[in-house]
């Protein structure tokens, strides 16, 4: 029997009838049509399918679509705004945080969760925070650089915004 599932994906409401066995990752890719979320393994290990469910990093291959009823989902497609890359996307680009790119959406979503929890992570925090994601090309070094660089950009952006706000108040 099919079940109705209503979610919000990257800010847009979605409603579909799905089979209970449909995995969330297949729902996103095949039903909603967002193929940025990748499937890299069959064993819940690689993290390529990582998305945010109500702000928490989750492997979307290890959740059924029916479980996402009423949830707010963010995929890699939901990060850039008005053609402007998210700092994590920009940093992975600048620091060569990818080679083949297959694992990248998962890494970026896991890193987005990490930076939301800890805006100023050390190298060790990043290694531990990304333990659920596998990359077979980069050797991880540039991925860690990318996350650090994004953290700096995002911290910097907040400071600048703060300074602007403070300046606006003064004037």
């Amino acid at each position: 029997m099919k079940h109705k599932v209503a979610t919000t994906v990257n800010g847009h409401p979605q409603e579909h009838e799905v089979e209970p066995r449909l995995l969330l990752v297949h729902y996103l890719r095949d039903v909603v049509g967002l193929t940025g979320t990748h499937i890299g393994c069959d064993t819940s290990q690689c993290g390529a399918c990582t998305i945010l469910v109500d702000g928490k990093a989750v492997k979307s291959c290890t959740m059924f679509a029916v479980q996402a009823e009423g949830k707010n989902l963010t995929t890699i497609e939901g990060l850039a705004h008005d053609g402007q890359l998210h700092p994590l996307q920009q940093a992975f680009w600048d620091e060569h945080g990818l080679q083949c790119g297959y694992c990248t959406p998962g890494f970026i979503m896991a890193a987005a969760y990490l930076l939301a929890q800890n805006p100023n992570p050390t190298d060790d925090d990043i290694r531990k925070g990304l333990e659920g994601n596998l990359c077979r090309c980069t050797g991880y070094v540039n991925i860690i650089k990318s996350v650090k660089s994004a953290a700096a950009m995002m911290g910097g952006a907040t400071e600048k915004a703060g300074e602007r706000a403070a300046a606006a108040k003064r004037s």
Binding site: A57, T62, A110, L114, G132, N133
Partner: peptide, 9 residues
């Protein structure tokens, strides 16, 4: 236990 994603669920 597991990793961040696993620990969230």
């Amino acid at each position: 236990v597991g990793d961040n994603q696993v620990r969230n669920m």
